[in-house]
């Protein structure tokens, strides 16, 4: 447990306690940790294992099964590029390529300064305004490749990594 701060341990214990009355709370616990803590490293899984009685192997299996959970911290801004069918046929590949080019990282990676992560998503249900990109939950409609540099700039200006 060497790497976790006391506050983090307390937070994770609190999350586990929050769902203690649920019948099978694992997914809810992990979702909450992912949301509040940003990622779910092994040390955190060990605490969850202790609290729930579920083996670390099983928890790790769940964490790595669902693409929403991550083992590494994500960037401050997570750029979710939809590569779903509706977006794909409207040129989403070029959009994500452009983000990759500008930020110098591949999808799934985080910039060295911890600012940006690019995620390839499968349909965010905004197909009516394809191609769509979602950045920290804000959806950008009908993107063009030429919009990409401006968007990156916008977030760069909004502030540094935590």
């Amino acid at each position: 447990m060497a790497h976790l701060s006391e506050a983090a341990v307390a937070q994770i214990n609190e999350i586990c306690a929050r769902y203690a009355d649920e019948k099978t709370p694992l997914m809810m616990i992990l979702s909450a940790i992912q949301k509040e803590y940003g990622y779910i490293p092994l040390e955190v899984q060990e605490i969850v294992s202790e609290k729930t009685g579920i083996s670390v192997a099983e928890i790790y299996g769940v964490v790595t099964f669902y693409s929403y959970f991550s083992l590494q911290p994500k960037g401050k801004y997570v750029i979710g590029c939809c590569l779903g069918t509706a977006c794909y046929v409207k040129g989403a590949q070029q959009i994500i390529d452009k983000f990759s080019e500008i930020l110098g990282i591949a999808p799934g990676e985080t910039t060295a300064d911890g600012m940006f992560t690019i995620d390839a998503l499968r349909c965010i249900g905004a197909c009516g305004i394809a191609p769509a990109v979602s950045i920290n939950g804000k959806v950008y409609p009908k993107l063009k490749v030429s919009d990409v540099p401006g968007i990156v700039e916008e977030y760069r200006n909004m502030g540094g990594a935590n």
């Binding site: 099978t24 997914m27 992912q34 099983e58 299996g61 769940v62 099964f65 669902y66 693409s67 929403y68």
Partner: peptide, 26 residues
């Protein structure tokens, strides 16, 4: 309410049930 976590196969009903049960969505 239960939230999915990014796995298409969880739309399949038995995988979905496994997911609610806190398991891998197989």
């Amino acid at each position: 309410i239960r939230l999915g976590a990014g796995a298409f196969v969880c739309g399949e009903e038995t995988a979905l049930l496994n997911s609610i049960e806190g398991k891998r969505g197989m």
